[in-house]
């Protein structure tokens, strides 16, 4: 085999197309939903998301995939700020053997550096630049959700090649959220089942699972010429 013969041939998997998405109806809702989950799981110590959540909490019946996000935002806002901060710290910041629940993907999966590189490559490809203050934690679940939110936003506003953002959403969620979200929810359930963050994580898990299924159902492999499949 000569070096020339090693040119990469796209596989079936690399050629995909989208159908059955009504962008006007789905992109903005999904964008808002990912954004809300990002806000709900942002560090209560670092970021005040009250304003964003109040707007949604005030909306009538904001349900997505049967998940009442408006009510979830209302619950978040009803919890005392200091109590919320303490709960966040106890779950995600310190414990006898590190934080009881990993809120950073790398922590959850054993400090595998490939996870972070994969994230940063996605961020870089789509020009998502994290503020210096948070740069050390590109794998924080809130950052990951925020990036997905951004991809959905792009999908809703760009005039051409929406496919890039649609496929990226699916791949990104597949690689970083689908496996992790159930673990994240289970761990919080084990540690503090009656907590605000347990509610958020259970809802997130449901949302990610259903949205991933929905995305998958709109993505099809391209048939190659000569493929009689």
């Amino acid at each position: 085999m000569t070096p020339d013969s090693l040119t990469i041939t796209p596989t079936n998997d690399s050629e995909r197309y989208i159908q059955d998405r009504d962008l006007n109806l789905t992109a903005a809702v999904r964008c808002k939903s990912y954004g809300l989950f990002s806000s709900l799981l942002a560090s209560s110590h670092e970021i005040d998301v009250g304003k964003q959540l109040r707007e949604v909490a005030g909306m009538d019946n904001f349900c997505v995939y049967g998940i009442d996000l408006g009510a979830l935002c209302g619950t978040y806002l009803s919890v005392d700020k200091l109590a919320r901060k303490n709960e966040y710290s106890r779950l995600f910041e310190i414990g006898d053997s590190g934080p009881p629940v990993a809120i950073r993907e790398q922590q959850q999966f054993g400090q595998i550096s490939g996870i972070r590189e994969d994230l940063v490559r996605f961020y870089e490809f789509f020009d998502y630049k994290i503020h210096q203050h948070y740069a050390w934690a590109p794998d924080h679940i809130s950052v990951i959700l925020e990036f997905t939110h951004l991809l959905c936003y792009y999908e809703s506003v760009v005039s051409e090649d929406q496919l890039s953002y649609q496929l990226a959403q699916y791949d990104f969620v597949s690689r970083h959220l689908v496996d992790w979200a159930p673990i994240f929810a289970d761990l919080i359930d084990n540690v503090q089942p009656d907590s605000l963050y347990a509610d958020i994580a259970r809802s997130l898990c449901l949302f990610i699972t259903r949205d991933h299924e929905w995305q998958a159902s709109t993505i099809f492999p391209m048939e190659r010429s000569g493929d009689n499949g």
């Binding site: 995909r16 998502y128 503020h131 950052v143 936003y153 690689r175």
Partner: peptide, 30 residues
């Protein structure tokens, strides 16, 4: 509100218009 709310990024990114090598088709592209 504006649909886009970025808590961890300093500015709201304007959407890049993917084309050519910036187009995303598979995770290998990144």
């Amino acid at each position: 509100s504006t649909l886009l709310t970025l808590n961890h990024a300093p500015i709201a990114a304007s959407a890049p218009q993917p084309s050519g090598e910036k187009a995303y088709r598979n995770f290998e592209d990144i």
